[in-house]
Amino acid sequence: MPVKIDVNGELVTAYLEGEIDHHSARVMRNDIDSAIERNMPSMLILDFRDISFMDSSGIGLVMGRYKNLKKNNAELHITNTSPQIYKVMKLAGLERLAKIDKVGSK
């Protein structure tokens, strides 16, 4: 399972696992979207601690979930990004959509 979902009231945390590329992003997207649909969170945390690599497919994944959450006025928070992941997110300007915490910042 590339995504583990943890529900705590209105807070849903998705722990992503493995590598995010065009090949793997589809399964992750479906898992996260069904968790959003089921739980209608007011905040979704995407936890990247177990992601070892991400290319721009990860940006598509994050932006797509952001749009989904926005329909319900819910917030997105990104945590535990490695330097490689943070660099890709920064290039895309994702920090304008969500709060991004680097790995080890909490």
């Binding site: 721009s56 598509g60 797509g64 290039l91």
Partner: peptide
């Protein structure tokens, strides 16, 4: 489509 960020060449 929707799920592609359009950032491949930018990266």
């Amino acid at each position: 489509g929707e799920e592609r960020a359009g950032l491949g060449f930018a990266v």
